[in-house]
Write a protein that binds this DNA or RNA. Structure first.
Length: 197
DNA sequence: ATCGGGATACGCT
DNA sequence: GCGTATCCCGATT
């Protein structure tokens, strides 16, 4: 199947809608050593400034969060400890919102993913987590700020999920009321989802 | 179940 | 500067 890049207009929708709409799409990163791609199977919405779990909570604007305040469709990568996490900015300019990609299902370049992640992994362990998939796909801080509708990495049309489940987000125990918001979405029963299938 | 860690940001000293 | 927390992972108990 030819990978058809999604247009800028795709990113102009409500963040919760975008988080659902991104399920089933293909995330592609082409590099000098080859191309790797995964089908998105799990996402989370972060809707600052009212979302205590978001980096942009309270309109906190720093060098790190700056891109979230710009127009939608740009890459927001950030590093937590040793891991790089990949988000797509959503929300109109001035609204610091984003969708975190938490898991993908290997689609292209599986060999490359094994090289990057280590050969001893089970396939379901290659990309079933936000830090794992960036390593497998080769996404780094160099991608920060790039427009996914006309750059690399990019997102392409894929295949719609059979069913979508939703639940609370992962790893945000100290976020007050926000920790209970059902802003995580995943393809029901997909084995590559990070948890909570 | 626990722990440490390559980055970033904050509040305090 | 340092201590602490963070949208996590992997190795170890």
């Amino acid at each position: 199947m030819r990978l058809q890049r999604l247009p800028e207009s795709f990113y102009h929708q409500q963040t919760l809608d975008l988080a659902r709409a991104m399920l089933g799409k293909i995330l592609i990163k082409e590099t000098a050593v080859g191309t790797a791609a995964g089908r998105i199977v799990e996402t989370e919405a972060y809707i600052g400034p009212g979302d205590q779990a978001a980096h942009s909570y309270g309109n906190r604007r720093t060098k790190r969060t700056e891109v979230m305040f710009g127009p939608p469709g740009h890459v927001y990568t950030y590093v937590m400890h040793t891991h790089c996490l990949f988000n797509v900015v959503s929300g109109r300019e001035g609204r610091p919102e984003a969708v975190l990609v938490r898991a993908v299902e290997p689609y292209l370049g599986k060999e490359l993913m094994y090289e990057r992640r280590g050969l001893h992994h089970k396939e379901t362990n290659l990309t079933s987590g936000p830090g794992k998939l960036t390593k497998a796909l080769g996404i780094t801080m160099e991608d920060y700020g790039l427009p996914v509708y006309q750059s690399v990495p990019f997102i392409a049309e894929g295949s719609s999920p059979e069913n979508i489940s939703e639940g609370t987000r992962i790893g945000i125990p100290n976020s007050g009321e926000a920790k209970d918001f059902p802003w995580r979405f995943w393809e029901t029963d997909n084995p590559f989802v990070s948890r909570g299938r």
